[in-house]
């Protein structure tokens, strides 16, 4: 959407929720696989969390590229792409990180 000064966001709610849902899916999927990868590589402590946020940043970049760098034609605000689902995925990440780490390294 062209950026005309005081542009009124005209967004269809159903399409927006479906877009947001696909973001949530990709983030959940990434946090689970990322957790497994972090566990197998044997990250501990802060490194793992940094890894998680790196993954999420890469995911944001990917989503940005997917939306062809025009966020406002797909979402109502930037925060959707940047933070949506990041903290929800953290729990899954920790679980799968622990699981893979234990299986590979602890026993």
């Amino acid at each position: 959407m062209a950026a005309t000064g005081d542009d009124v966001p005209i967004i269809q709610a159903e399409n927006l929720t479906s877009n947001v849902r696909s973001i949530l899916y990709s983030r959940t999927f990434l946090s689970i696989t990322g957790g497994v990868v972090a566990g197998i590589w044997g990250f501990t402590g802060l490194t793992g969390f940094i890894f998680y946020f790196l993954i999420m940043m890469v995911a944001s970049l990917g989503l940005l590229a997917k939306s062809k760098f025009s966020v406002h034609s797909y979402f109502d605000s930037w925060s959707r792409i940047l933070v949506e689902g990041v903290f929800g995925g953290l729990m899954s990440f920790v679980l799968f990180w622990t699981f893979a780490y234990d299986i590979v390294h602890i026993f």
Binding site: R21, L24, Y25, T28, F29, S31, I32, G88, G89, M91, S92, V94, L95, F96, T98
Partner: peptide, 17 residues
């Protein structure tokens, strides 16, 4: 308990919306 809370994401992936 950790599983109980952490698996929610997995469920949303495998069971659909």
């Amino acid at each position: 308990f950790l599983n109980l809370f952490g698996l929610r994401g997995l469920f949303s992936l495998i069971l659909g919306e």
